[in-house]
Computed example of a mutant assay.
Amino acid sequence: MILGEHSTPEAIQALHHSLGLDLPLWEQFTRFVQNLFTHGDTGASIAWGTSTRELIAERAPVTLLLIVMASVLAILVALVLATLAATNKDRLLDHLIRIFPTITLGMPVFWVGLLLILFFSVRLGWFPVGGVGEGVAGTLYSLTLPAITVAFSQIPTLVRSLRAQMLEVLESDFVVTLKAAGIPNRVILTKHVLRNSALPTLMLLGVNISYLIGGTLVVEQVFGIKGIGSLLFSAISKRDFPVIQGIALYCAISVVIISLLIEISSWLLDPRTKGKQ
C-alpha cells in the first residue's frame, strides 16, 4: 500500500525492516504497547506518514466543540420540554411533547442533517452548507446546524426520562407539603423537583454522550467538517489501520472520562451520598 503496485522486492524488504515487520510477532506487539503508553501513539499513518497522535490532535478541537455544543443544546431543549410536559400533565401540550420523541427516535441522524441543510442552508440561507468558519464567532456559527443535528437524536430520550422523573417527584408527599405551605411553584420546580429528578436523567445523559461521539463522526461527514469523523472515513477508505486504531483508542478514553465525570456529578447531586466516603 505504501510503495504502490509496482514496487520491487528490495524496496518491500527495506520497508519491512524500517517498520519492524521482520521482527517476531511478540516483539512487534511489545513495541506497539510501549509506544502506546509512552507517547499515546498507535504508530505512523500509512497514508499521511505522520504520527497518528498529531493527526488526531489537529482534528480533535472541532469535534470536541461540536460535542459540547450538541450536549448543551440537548440539555436545554430537553429541560424546557420535559418541564412543560410535566407541569401540563395529560393536557394538549403534554400530548404534543410526548408525540415528539416517538416520531424523532426513528429518524437517522444523517438524514436529519440533510433535511436541515436543504431547509436552513439551501432554501433560507441562514447557515453555511458545510465547513468550519474562521475565528471564534465563525466557528460557532458554522457548527450551529451540525450541533442541532446531533442534539436532535439525543433530545427524545432525555425528554421522556426527565418528564417521568418530574411527574414522580411532583406527586410525592414533600411537594404537596411545600404547595400547602404557600411556596411558589417556580421555587418548587427549580429548587426541589428538578434537583430530585436530575439524577436518573444525568446517568442517561452519560450513556447518550457516549453514543453521541459516534453520531458526531457521521454528522461531520454530512456537513464536510474536517474533524475526527472525516479523518476516520478517510483512514477507512485508505485502509490506514494505525489512524483507525488511534481514533478508536481516543474515543474509548473519552467515553471512560465522560462516565467518570457523570459519576462524580451524580455523587454531588444525590444528597444521600453527602458525608459518606
Rank of each mutant, 00 (worst) to 15 (best):
G227K: 11
V169W: 07
K179D: 11
G133N: 00
I258H: 05
S7L: 10
A151P: 08
C251M: 06
V243A: 04
S234A: 11
I253W: 04
L202V: 09
L189D: 05
S259W: 12
G130C: 07
A70K: 14
E54I: 02
H192L: 06
V129E: 02
S234L: 06
R160M: 07
A151L: 08
P184E: 10
L3D: 01
T83S: 15
L3H: 01
A78I: 11
W26Y: 04
R163K: 12
G106M: 04
S45V: 04
V243D: 06
K191L: 02
L143D: 05
L76H: 05
H6L: 15
A151S: 14
T144Y: 07
H6P: 04
V222F: 04
A78Q: 07
L124F: 09
G246W: 01
I75W: 07
D270L: 09
W111P: 00
R239G: 00
L76W: 10
D22K: 00
L178H: 11
G20N: 02
L269N: 04
H6G: 13
T30S: 12
S259H: 15
A57C: 06
V80W: 07
V176T: 15
L162A: 05
T144M: 14
V33N: 05
F127H: 02
P24C: 00
L162C: 01
F32E: 14
I148T: 12
G182K: 07
S210K: 06
M1Y: 15
L170I: 10
G113M: 04
A57Y: 08
F37M: 14
L158R: 04
Y211Q: 10
K276F: 05
A164P: 08
A70M: 14
S237D: 12
H16D: 13
S172L: 01
L269F: 12
G227V: 12
I228M: 13
I225W: 03
L73P: 05
P184Y: 08
S230M: 13
S121T: 09
F100L: 15
S71Q: 13
G246T: 01
G275N: 14
L194A: 12
S7M: 09
S237V: 02
Q245G: 02
F110D: 03
T52V: 13
S234Q: 13
A235G: 08
Y141T: 14
P128D: 10
G246S: 05
L143N: 03
G275W: 13
P24V: 00
G113A: 03
Q34L: 13
W48F: 10
L178V: 08
T201R: 01
H95D: 12
L93D: 00
S234G: 09
L261M: 14
T8W: 11
K274H: 15
T87N: 10
V169E: 06
Q277Y: 13
R59V: 08
A78L: 05
G20V: 02
E10W: 03
K274T: 14
V218Y: 07
I103R: 03
G224Y: 11
L84E: 13
G20C: 01
L76E: 09
V109A: 05
A252E: 04
I188G: 02
I155S: 00
A198T: 06
I262W: 10
D240G: 01
G246H: 01
L212R: 11
V132M: 05
E58K: 11
D240K: 00
V193Y: 01
G224E: 09
G20T: 03
G40M: 11
P128H: 07
L23Q: 09
F100E: 11
P9H: 08
P200Y: 02
